[in-house]
Amino acid sequence: MSITTTKLTRAAGLSAVAAGLLFAAVQINHPHLDANFVTTTEWTVRQTMKVVMAALALIGITGMYLRQVKQTGILGLIGYVLFSAGYLTMLSIETIGTVVLPSIAHSAPGYVNDVLAVSTSGNAAGDIGLMQPLLSFMGIGYLGGGLLFGIALFRARILARWAAVLLGVGTVSAIAIPLLPQINERLFAVPTAVALVGLGISLWRDQRTVVGHSLPVENSSPLDAAGAK
């Protein structure tokens, strides 16, 4: 099987779809985060899903950007770099959560609880070291990058514009989580998840259209056939 730009772009679209589905699925019936939950099998399963989701999202948004580099311009570049940096940091944090936190949950439960609190827009009782700026950078990349990238995709007019709007609105809406404690914070992930699915499908369909238009068409006429005899 030959590897082509079209096939890679279609794969990126499917990666975005898978990332969106995982992002939504991991929110379902999510337990309260504390040091006790970190040591369970369910934590490992959910964290693994988050790691895979972040990796697939990186592939997906990279494919979206490369498909419309010229159309998105400088805004698209800034949005992509910031958004991808946010997801790359998220990938790192979720990996730490999968590998490191369970191993120190019994010896340093206070630290683990503080990290979990900050990761869900809460406040830490103690010092969590470099995890604080790492979590802050992830938030800036996810919120700011998602907004700028969504605007750039909307202006490019190539992928589904409704999904681009939802991406920008969905990511930046996470700012409201500390202001609306009565609303389940997991619900704020749904718009972004739907946006990733919508953009991924749009990217995949766009590449199918490109393939369809690029197929050679053999035209023949009765005169050509007669002349060939």
Rank of each mutant, 00 (worst) to 15 (best):
G150H: 07
E185V: 01
Y142F: 15
P178C: 09
V165R: 12
V118M: 13
F137W: 11
A174C: 01
R161M: 10
F149D: 09
Y111C: 00
L180D: 01
E185F: 09
V118I: 14
G170L: 08
G145E: 05
S173F: 05
I177C: 01
A124E: 04
G126L: 03
T171V: 08
P178T: 10
P181K: 01
V112Q: 11
F149N: 08
L130D: 01
D127I: 01
A163R: 06
V118N: 07
G146H: 12
M131V: 00
I140E: 02
A152D: 08
L179F: 14
I177P: 00
A156T: 13
G141W: 05
P133K: 12
L143R: 12
A124N: 03
V118L: 14
V112R: 10
L180G: 00
A152T: 06
E185Q: 13
I151G: 05
G170M: 08
L153Y: 04
E185G: 09
V112Y: 09
Y111I: 08
A156C: 11
G170S: 10
A152C: 06
G145A: 05
L147C: 08
I158A: 10
S121R: 11
V112H: 06
M138K: 14
L143N: 07
V172I: 15
A176P: 01
T171P: 00
I140R: 00
M138G: 00
Y111F: 15
I140V: 15
N184S: 13
S173H: 02
Y142T: 15
L148G: 02
L130N: 05
I183W: 02
L180A: 08
G144S: 09
A117N: 10
A160D: 15
A176M: 14
F154I: 06
W162S: 12
N113S: 06
L159C: 02
Q182L: 06
G141F: 04
P181M: 04
S173M: 13
M138E: 14
A174R: 15
T120K: 12
A117H: 04
L134K: 03
N184G: 02
A117C: 04
N123C: 00
N113W: 08
A125Q: 13
D127R: 01
Q132N: 05
G150A: 09
Y111T: 10
S173A: 15
G139T: 08
L143V: 10
T171A: 14
G129N: 03
V115K: 07
F137T: 06
A152I: 11
R157A: 13
L159K: 05
P178L: 09
L147V: 13
P133H: 09
A156D: 11
R157C: 01
R157Q: 15
R155V: 12
L159T: 07
A152W: 10
A156L: 14
A124W: 03
L153M: 14
L148H: 03
